[in-house]
Design a protein around this nucleic acid. Structure first.
Lengths: 107, 107
DNA sequence: ATAATATGCAACTAAATGGTTGCCTATTCA
DNA sequence: TGAATAGGCAACCATTTAGTTGCATATTAT
């Protein structure tokens, strides 16, 4: 369960959209997740595979179809072990920026 | 300032390490950020360029050297506009998982 | 003035990535 | 039983990516 795999998985917009879809409705089949997508089913399968490898998605078979469920744990860990570190020192970093760049515009 | 650029930038471990270094000590020069790195200065420059494009890092010239500062805003936005959505429904998703997979182990 | 230092820029390369097509298997429905 | 549906798997392709080497420029130190 490497954090790197999670970050990599989140680095692609198609995959984030798949997560968003599952967030909107959990437990969808592959077919459902393909609807209205402008890539082939096989491409979607690959993306879902990467999400599964990162443990962001967990699947279950029901007959001939495959159900996809969101696993909130890895995102929580990213929030907790990585993002939060930067959030804690946020105001400090902002004041550093002001100090260094006051008066300067980026044009 | 697209969120996609931020996610992409965070998707590489070398770039996250650069951010971590700046988090540990803000305002480092390119040379300093290269110390102990097992890639060339030019490779580091490219990574820093991607971080700059994503607005995660802001730079300033001091004589012949370039100082690098962390910009906490994009990470905050990711936390606020993306991560938090999943954090809110976290317990719900966990109970979904339990419901679907109780009794099953992944071995 | 010269040498050393700090960085910039461009061309090139290997490997990873995101996508495709084609075909096969398993389950369900009529 | 046969057709339709849901998905799996492998080979292939184009582009992007992460890195390199080589050289140029600007600033500082002697």
């Amino acid at each position: 369960m490497s954090m790197d795999a999670v970050f990599k998985a989140l680095g692609d917009p198609s995959r984030r959209e798949l997560l968003d879809r599952l967030h909107a409705r959990n437990g969808q089949t592959l077919g459902e997740l393909c609807e209205g997508q402008d890539m082939t089913r096989q491409a979607v399968t690959k993306h879902l595979g990467i999400l599964e490898d990162a443990n962001l998605v967990v699947t279950r078979k029901r007959g001939r179809e495959k159900l996809h469920y969101l696993n909130p744990v890895p995102i929580h860990e990213v929030a907790d072990r990585w993002i939060s570190k930067y959030e804690r020192s946020r105001l400090r970093a902002l004041s550093d920026l002001k100090k260094q760049f006051e008066g300067k515009t980026e044009n």
